[in-house]
Design a binder for these strands. Structure first.
Length: 728
DNA sequence: AGCACGCCGACT
DNA sequence: GTCGGCGTGCTC
C-alpha cells in the first residue's frame, strides 16, 4: 500500500505518514484530508513512497485526497522549502500560511463559474424595452436597464455593483430574451491607452531591463519622487505581457492598492488582473489564486502574501517601495517578501525590479557592490513639478509653544490665507530614551558594540539593548563636562488643541488609527481632502504613504529628532525615507511645496542631506557608520525572540538557549536583552542576537541551534527565530 | 497548535 | 472522597 508523506499545519518540523491506497507520484502537491490525533486536518502531500519509518500500529489511513484542483506546482513547493529552511520555521506551517484559507479546510473547493468571463448586452428585444415599462418602485430593475442602455455591455462584477439582487434579475432577463451573454475576449495583447512619452532616463531603464530578457537579475530602480518609476514598471509589464507571460507586482501594505490598481487597469484594460489585498474575503482570494495558477490572470498585484501565489508563466517581479518594512512579516513566519521575490526570480530565471526613491541600505549596498544592477532616475518626469523646498526650524532659537514654533505658525497662517492645504506630521514612534548632552550633542555609547545605551530610570542605569552591557549614569557629559545631561524627551502632545486655539476658523482633520479604522473611512477622508473640505491635516506614519494631495503646499514636521539618537540603528534610515516621502506630498501638481522641520539639530547630516534631497550623501554616511559599528549590511543577523508572563522566565530560557550554542568563530552570540517594547499585551519580551559576516556560517549555525532549542522544555515560553530582523 | 494524561488543592 | 487546576508530551 502506498504511503503519503503529508505536511500539516502543526509546529513540528516533520512530515506525517499515512496509508493511501489510490496514491501515486502524480499526487505530490495535492491536498489530503487525514486523521490527526482526535481531529481531522488537511495538509499537502510532499512525497509518495512504498515504505515508512513509522511502526505499522501507529500508521493510519488518509480519509481522502482532493483532486478537484491541480497539485501545487513544484516551483511553489521549492519556494516553501527554501522559506522553511531559511527562516527556520516548520514546513507545514510555512505552506499552510502561504495558501488561501479555503485550501486549508477539510473540504474540496467548489469551483463556481468564474466571474469576469462573460459580458452581457441587450438583445434587439431588450433594446425595445422602455424604462417606463418597469414599475417605478422596482428600482433595481430600472437601474440595471438604465446601465445597459448607457454602457452597452456589462460584466458580472459591474452588475453586482449595481445591486446584489441585479444578478438574479439578469438571469430572468436572459430567460425573457432581453439579454445575451458572450465570452469576454481574454486578449493578452496589451491595449495601451494614453501612453506618456518616456524621458531619456526612463527609456534607458526600460531598455536595459527588457534587454536582459529571460535572465535572472536584480535591478534596483532608484528614482527620485516623481521620476516616473510607475511608468517604467508599466512598460516592462507591457513587454512581458506581449510574450504572453505574467507579471507579479508587490506593494506595501497601506499604500492604497486601489489607486495603483486603477492605474494598471486603465493602462491594460483588456488584460486580466488580479488584486490580492487584505480586503478580500476567502472566496475572492481563492478565485484570484486559481486565476494566477492557471495563467488566466496576467497581472497579479498584491501585498507581501502575494509572493506565495503560484504562477504558471512568470515573466517579471516588481517590488515597489522595496525599503518598506511591511514586506517583512512581523509575527509567526517572519519572512521578507522582497527577499523571497528575489529567490523566485532566480528560480524562474527572470528579472526582479526593486523600486524606491530611498532604497534600503541593504539594497543600496548590494547595488554599489554590483550584486544588483543599479538604475537611476534623477530627473522628474512630471512637467513643472519642482522639488519641495525643505528647511529646518531651529527650536533652540524659536521657542516651542505647546509643540509649535513661531515660524511654523506663520507659515500655516500664510498657507490658510492662500487657501492651500497644509499637513502637520508628527513622528511618534516609540523610541527608547537615550542620554543626551544638550550642549554638545553627546550621547552615551556602548563601548562593546557602538550602539547607544538606553536610559533605565527605575534603577538609574544605562543598558545596551544590543549586547546586554550595562553601566552607571555619568554625572556630567564626558565630552564637554556639562552637567545638563538628560534623557531625550518626547513631548509634543495636544498639537491639535494648540492648532485649534491658533486657527479657530480653520477646518482641522486629525488622522490616526481610530479615525481610519472604519471600513470606508479612508475613502471619506481622501474625498474630504480632495474637495478641499479640510485646511489642516494632522497625522502620523499613515500619511506618508503615496497619496496625492494636489492642493497641499505646506508640510510641518514635529518630533523627528528622536530618530537621530535612537538605539535602533535603522531609525535614521527610516526617518530619512519617511521624511522624503512626506515631503513628496507637498506641491505635486501646480503648487510649490514647502517643508518645515522643527529640530534642535539643524546641522545634523540627516537634515542637511534632506534639504539637498541628497539620498546618496546620507547613505554614504550611514554606510560608513554601519561598517565601523559592524551592523548590516556588513553583517548578517538573526534574533532569538522569546516571550512569557515573567521576564525572568524569558531571560532564563534565553540563557539556556545560549548554553546550547557552540558558535563557530565566524559567528558572534550576544547576551539576552529585554526587547525594545519589553512589555506588550501583558507579556514580557526579550531576545538574543546572533550575527556573522558570513551568511553561510550564520545559517549553518542557526540550523543546528534551532534543532537544539526545540528540545528545550518549553516552560510556557513562546519563541521564534527571526532571520534578518528589522525591529529589535 | 490542540488535546489528552496526570498529579495536587477546595468543594458536595 | 471528587472536581478541576494547568504542567508535560504526543500527534503518522
Amino acid at each position: 500500500m502506498p504511503i503519503i508523506r503529508v505536511a500539516l499545519n502543526v509546529p513540528v518540523d516533520t512530515l506525517f505518514d499515512y496509508q493511501a491506497e489510490d496514491a501515486s507520484q502524480h499526487d505530490i502537491g495535492l491536498r489530503a484530508c487525514v486523521p490527526f490525533g482526535k481531529k481531522q486536518v488537511t495538509g499537502i502531500i510532499l512525497a509518495v513512497s512504498d515504505e515508512t519509518q513509522i511502526p505499522v500500529e501507529k500508521l493510519k489511513s488518509a480519509y481522502c485526497i482532493f483532486r478537484e484542483i491541480k497539485p501545487l506546482p513544484a516551483a511553489l513547493l521549492d519556494l516553501f522549502h527554501f522559506c522553511s529552511q531559511y527562516y527556520h520555521h516548520p514546513l507545514g506551517m510555512v505552506i499552510m500560511n502561504g495558501l488561501p484559507v479555503k485550501l486549508r479546510n477539510n473540504k474540496p473547493v467548489s469551483l463556481k463559474r468564474k466571474p469576469h468571463q462573460y459580458q452581457y448586452s441587450l438583445t434587439s428585444a431588450g433594446k425595445n424595452v422602455e424604462l417606463t415599462q418597469i414599475p417605478a418602485r422596482n428600482r433595481v430593475a430600472r437601474r440595471l436597464l438604465n446601465e445597459f442602455q448607457q454602457a452597452v455591455t456589462l460584466t458580472n462584477p459591474q452588475i453586482k455593483h449595481i445591486s446584489p439582487r441585479a444578478e438574479k434579475l439578469l438571469q430572468d432577463w436572459i430567460q425573457l430574451g432581453w439579454i445575451t451573454s458572450e465570452l469576454c475576449s481574454a486578449s493578452t495583447a496589451a491595449r495601451v491607452a494614453k501612453t506618456p512619452v518616456l524621458t531619456a532616463e526612463q527609456e534607458i531603464a526600460v531598455n536595459a531591463i527588457t534587454a536582459g530578457g529571460k535572465q535572472f537579475n536584480t535591478w534596483l530602480l532608484h528614482g527620485v519622487t516623481g521620476s516616473g518609476k510607475t511608468e517604467v514598471y508599466l512598460r516592462i509589464i507591457e513587454s512581458v505581457l506581449a510574450q504572453g507571460r505574467q507579471a507579479l507586482v508587490l506593494i506595501p501594505e497601506i499604500s492604497l492598492t486601489p489607486q495603483l490598481e486603477g492605474v494598471f487597469r486603465g493602462r491594460f484594460s483588456n488584460v486580466p488582473l488580479v488584486s490580492l489585498h487584505s480586503g478580500l474575503n476567502d472566496t475572492e482570494r481563492l478565485t484570484g489564486w486559481l486565476q494566477a495558477e492557471s495563467g488566466e490572470a496576467k497581472i497579479i498585484l498584491g501585498t507581501r502574501l502575494a509572493v506565495f501565489t503560484p504562477l504558471s508563466d512568470l515573466g517579471v517581479i516588481i517590488v515597489d517601495e522595496e525599503q518598506d518594512s511591511s514586506f517583512k512579516q512581523q509575527d509567526g513566519l517572519r519572512y521578507s517578501a522582497r527577499d523571497l521575490a528575489i529567490f523566485r526570480a532566480r528560480q524562474n530565471a527572470i528579472p526582479v525590479i526593486l523600486g524606491s526613491a530611498t532604497p534600503s541600505l541593504e539594497s543600496y549596498y548590494n547595488a554599489l557592490t554590483n550584486r544588483y544592477r543599479h538604475i537611476r532616475l534623477l530627473s522628474r518626469a512630471v512637467q513643472n513639478a519642482t522639488l519641495p523646498l525643505i528647511q529646518c526650524i531651529d527650536t533652540r532659537i524659536h521657542k516651542n509653544q505647546e509643540g509649535l514654533s513661531d515660524p511654523l505658525i506663520q507659515a500655516l497662517n500664510q498657507c490658510l490665507q492662500e487657501k492651500h492645504q497644509s499637513l502637520i506630521f508628527i513622528n511618534r514612534r516609540g523610541y527608547a530614551p537615550v542620554l543626551l548632552c544638550k550642549s554638545c550633542g553627546w550621547t552615551a555609547p556602548c563601548q562593546r558594540c557602538s550602539s547607544r545605551l538606553v536610559v533605565h530610570l527605575r534603577d538609574k542605569k544605562l543598558r545596551c539593548h544590543h549586547c546586554g552591557h550595562q553601566e552607571q549614569f555619568p554625572r556630567a557629559c564626558p565630552q564637554c563636562g556639562n552637567q545638563d545631561i538628560a534623557p531625550f524627551g518626547q513631548g509634543t502632545q495636544r498639537v491639535e488643541e494648540t492648532l485649534t486655539a491658533h486657527f479657530p476658523a480653520a477646518r482641522i482633520l486629525r488622522i490616526d488609527r481610530d479615525s481610519t479604522r472604519r471600513k470606508h473611512a479612508w475613502q471619506e477622508i481622501l474625498h474630504a481632502v480632495h474637495t478641499h473640505q479640510v485646511d489642516i491635516l494632522i497625522g502620523t506614519q499613515l500619511l506618508s504613504k503615496g497619496h496625492d494631495f494636489p492642493n497641499l503646499s505646506l508640510v510641518g514636521i514635529l518630533n523627528a529628532d528622536g530618530a537621530l539618537y535612537s538605539t535602533d540603528f535603522r531609525a535614521s534610515e527610516r526617518l530619512f525615507a519617511q521624511l522624503m516621502q512626506v515631503a513628496g506630498r507637498a506641491g505635486r501638481a501646480n503648487v510649490a511645496g514647502h517643508v518645515l522641520i522643527q529640530t534642535e539639530f539643524p546641522d545634523h547630516p540627516l537634515y542637511q542631506a534632506l534639504q539637498r534631497h541628497d539620498y546618496d550623501a546620507l547613505a554614504q554616511t550611514l554606510l560608513a557608520e554601519r561598517k565601523i559599528a559592524g551592523f548590516p549590511p556588513y553583517v548578517y543577523q538573526a534574533l532569538l525572540r522569546a516571550e512569557a508572563h515573567h521576564i525572568k522566565t524569558v531571560l532564563d530560557f534565553l540563557a539556556q538557549a545560549a548554553q546550547l550554542a557552540r558558535p563557530p568563530q565566524a559567528v558572534e552570540l550576544f547576551d539576552p536583552v529585554p526587547a525594545h517594547m519589553s512589555r506588550l499585551k501583558g507579556l514580557e519580551r526579550a531576545h538574543l542576537l546572533v550575527q556573522s559576516s558570513s551568511r553561510k556560517h550564520l545559517h549553518t549555525f542557526l540550523t543546528g541551534w534551532y534543532a537544539k532549542i526545540t528540545t528545550l522544555p518549553s516552560q510556557k515560553v513562546r519563541w521564534v527565530l527571526d532571520v534578518d530582523p528589522l525591529e529589535f
